[in-house]
Design a protein around this nucleic acid. Structure first.
Length: 440
RNA sequence: CGGGGCGUAGCGCAGCCUGGUAGCGCAUCUGCUUUGGGAGCAGAGGGCCGGAGGUUCGAAUCCUCUCGCCCCGACCA
């Protein structure tokens, strides 16, 4: 993308409406624009990141055996009456009436709908297990939306729903998602810690919140320091094999949010192992048994021919929220520092002197060598403006090309995350930006 | 939903108390100069002062109502 033609409205001044770093930076970097309280339009740069994050989520869901579908945003009230949640959900649910006076709603979640869909086709135990997910916009009419996309009313969410024959099988489905979540967040450069969550009236021990640590987190969390040091991507999980060792590693060490915090267990860790910080919830998984399958009348024929009510779980990831969370965990005074996997572009090529033949040629050559991965700042702006905009937007690499270096075919390569710079040839620059892939 | 605050040019703000026909910085446009960390000079354009009612000779300013947005709290992916 050439910045001279791009719709990339960066702001020098901080809009008054933003209170936290990620919100300010997303507005300043031209990623989003608020259209109502808690509702945002996604501009080109923000959309690219949203798509990259979505794609990582998708790949890891697929790898864990889940299958993607896409359910509508608008649902019928009738569906929600079957589970009893139409009346329970309260004012958080946005209710809509169509021209025929039918009661509709903008979905805050999809348990009822997915169960209803699955029910239409699943007839036998052979149709299980299945895990269906979609990445779709949700709406929850929060009392007080805030912090930009971290707590919007409209938000993009990945939600998966597993259907199993019995509780043991459901536990396995749960573990697959547990492991998939660890990988998903790790690939985005985040250390997300699963923490046992309150299961509410449903009961059971199978509910975890995945929480990343950031100063602006909404809740206080407590964990064992081992959990921060574990390299999740070191080995690929075998979803057909035994997932217990991985799951047990995480669940056997202390990690709890404020509500679930246990002082005695915490103190037993010893001060040298304690980490206490603020956390942002980016995912939540839970097993809820037959709550919805029963209410929605889902049952299949078991091996003995008798009807059997599937056991279900649901697994959410706040995709749009993740952008805010990633920025909260990766920024400095100058702007965003995107982890490479989710950066809108891998590299910004800064042509410090458009019109200079040497600069133009070297920039074009590099730009052509990075198809779809680079922004070329070919604007007639001063160097300082380009530096600041590149720092703000947070591209992991900056290829700085000015008349001095261009004369020698040299590129000044800067790493946004560390500020390191070095003078390299074009070939070397490409090697630096594309190391041999490892891990995933 | 309780408490607080703010709506004036694209963005950030002053003006309001004490009514007299709207201003500053940045951005935008033109010209000249400048050119490695948000340039300088000169000029220009841009406003139903959130909306509706009222008071007044006269309202951005005072009064009433209303809409929107932000912050704190309770609540949440």
């Amino acid at each position: 993308m050439r910045l001279s033609r791009a719709f990339l409205p960066t702001l020098k001044e901080v809009p008054a409406e933003a209170a936290i770093a990620s919100h300010k930076l997303m507005l300043r970097a031209g990623m989003i624009r608020q259209t109502s309280a808690g509702i945002y339009a996604w501009l080109p740069l923000g959309l690219r990141v949203l798509q990259k994050v979505s794609q990582i989520v998708r790949e890891e869901q697929d790898a864990a055996g889940a299958q993607e579908i896409l359910m509508p945003t608008i649902q019928s009230a009738e569906l929600w009456r079957q589970s009893g949640r139409y009346d329970d959900y309260g004012k958080e649910m946005l209710r809509i009436t169509d021209r025929h006076e039918r009661e509709m709603l903008f979905g805050p979640t999809n348990e009822e709908m997915v169960t209803d869909i699955f029910k239409s086709y699943a007839k036998s135990y052979r149709d299980l297990p299945r895990n269906l997910y979609h990445i779709q916009w949700k709406f929850r009419d929060e009392i007080r939306p805030r912090f930009g996309v971290m707590r919007g009313r409209e938000f993009l969410m990945k939600d998966a729903y597993s259907f199993d024959l019995d509780a043991d099988a459901a536990r396995l489905s749960y573990k697959k998602m547990f492991v998939a979540y660890l990988r998903t967040f790790a690939r985005m450069g985040l250390k997300a810690i699963p923490m046992r969550a309150d299961t509410g009236p449903i009961g059971g021990d199978l509910s975890h919140e995945f929480i990343i640590l950031a100063e602006t987190g909404e809740s206080q969390v407590y964990l064992h320091k081992d959990l921060l040091e574990f390299d999740v991507l070191a080995q690929k999980p075998d979803y057909e094999g035994d997932l217990d060792p991985t799951v047990n590693f995480w669940t056997s060490r202390y990690a709890a949010t404020d509500e679930m915090h246990d002082e005695a267990a915490w103190n037993a860790l010893g001060a040298e192992n304690q980490v206490s910080a603020r956390g942002i919830e980016v995912g939540h998984i839970f097993f809820f048994g037959d709550k919805y399958s029963k209410a929605m009348g889902l049952s299949v024929a078991g091996t003995d021919g008798n009807p059997l009510v599937p056991q279900m779980g649901s697994y959410g990831i706040g995709v749009s929220r993740l952008l805010g969370a990633i920025i909260e965990a990766n920024h400095d005074e100058a702007g965003i520092k995107w982890p490479e996997a989710v950066a809108p572009f891998r590299c910004a090529i800064l042509n410090l002197k458009p019109g200079d033949l040497g600069c133009d040629m070297l920039c074009e050559k590099l730009y052509a060598s990075l198809p779809g991965e680079a922004v070329l700042d070919d604007r007639g702006e001063r160097a300082g403006v380009k530096f600041n905009d590149a720092d703000l937007a947070g591209y992991p690499w900056q290829a700085i090309i000015g008349p001095r270096g261009a004369a020698n075919e040299k590129i000044e390569l800067k790493r946004r995350a560390t500020g390191e710079r070095e003078e390299v040839s074009l070939e070397e620059a490409l090697r630096r930006m594309h190391p041999v892939p490892s891990g995933h």
